[in-house]
Computed example of a mutant assay.
Amino acid sequence: MKLISVVTGCFNEEDNVEELHSRIRAQFERLPAYDYEHIFIDNASTDATVARIKAMAANDRRVKLIVNARNFGHIRSPMHALLQARGDAVIAMASDLQEPPELIAEFVQKWEQGYRVVAGVRCGVQRTAAMSFVRRAFYTTIGGISETRLIPNFTGFGLYDRSVVEVVRRVDDPYPYFRGLIADIGFDHAEVPFVQPQRARGISKNNFYTLYDMAILGITSHSKLPIRLATMAGFALSALSLLVALGYLVYKLLRWDQFSVGMAPVVIGFFFFASVQLFFIGILGEYIAAIHTQVLRRPLVVEKERVNFDAPTTGA
């Protein structure tokens, strides 16, 4: 029997992990030709998430748990769990029930057709119009400036063949932009559209900083355009400044008595060029920070505890 690994990252999801487990188990009951393991990786939850997963693991040997020593974030932790999976294919999904387990059968079907990557693609999202606009703008922007063709509206939810996981392992990125990394590997992929439901229980762990971090990580990992724009803008603004200076000089020579420059252009020009400099220094800083993260080579996570990893995956 082929083994399918399901990898789920969680942080303070005590109200969702049990339903997620039961829905995933129900899907594999309809796939009797496959065995599976369900790996939860917990980012040092402060609620009863770990206790509930341990209770499920005691009754179902397919359920496995990694508990991190601290919260290592929503980028590093799921990647670590993905690399611990033993399956012939690995399915990655969040624990908030906004990525429906009911797509598992279709993922597996596409995989058996020969696709090494099966991407769950959001064709609709049940959220506010403002947030939908921001997300569309981000995906359009990063898709336009990326040096590789990214999968639109793909967040990492999907199925990955063992060969893909091994390529990701060899990349050994300590802070990966996973959805971009999958596109950069270049295997043919299938897309499975779905409508993302609103969160029914609990609160989202994403905030402005985490969304900004993900956006900047995607840009710095897959595009040199911003840093090149800084160079081109420097040349363009230098040329513009020279033309303005020459224009002022000629006009002053022609209208020596009537033309008074005043302080307003000086002040406006000073703040304009200062703000442009700060903007591009910030972009440069983001690229330097990305390099710094790579150079440190810190582990993805530090584990505090493992449950059921020495157990066979045959069932409860």
Rank of each mutant, 00 (worst) to 15 (best):
I227K: 14
A239Q: 05
D257K: 10
A239W: 08
Y212I: 01
K205V: 13
L242Y: 12
D257E: 13
D172C: 09
K205A: 13
A239S: 09
I151Q: 05
L150V: 00
D161N: 06
L225R: 13
A200I: 13
F187Q: 07
S260V: 14
S260R: 13
A245M: 14
M214V: 03
M232V: 09
D184Y: 06
A200E: 15
L211W: 07
L246H: 06
F178N: 00
R199C: 05
L159R: 04
Y177M: 09
V171D: 02
K252P: 02
T231W: 09
L253W: 13
L211T: 13
L237A: 08
Q196H: 03
F259I: 05
Y175P: 03
L249I: 11
P176H: 03
A230C: 09
G186M: 09
L181I: 01
H189V: 02
R179N: 08
G156Q: 05
I185Y: 05
G156D: 05
G158R: 06
P226K: 00
L242W: 12
P197D: 07
Y160Q: 04
F178M: 14
F208H: 07
P152H: 08
L181S: 11
H189L: 11
V168L: 15
G218L: 00
I203E: 14
M232Q: 12
E166R: 11
K224H: 12
L225A: 14
A245H: 06
P176M: 04
L253C: 14
D184A: 13
M214R: 12
E191L: 12
V192R: 11
L253M: 15
D172A: 15
E166L: 11
G247E: 06
T220L: 00
I203S: 10
A190M: 07
I216T: 11
V250G: 02
F157K: 04
V164Y: 01
V168H: 02
D188W: 02
F157H: 05
F235S: 10
G158C: 10
L225D: 03
A245G: 06
G202Q: 07
A230M: 09
F178S: 02
I182W: 02
W256H: 10
L242I: 15
I227L: 14
R199N: 05
G158N: 09
P226C: 01
T155F: 10
K205I: 14
A190P: 08
L181N: 06
V165N: 01
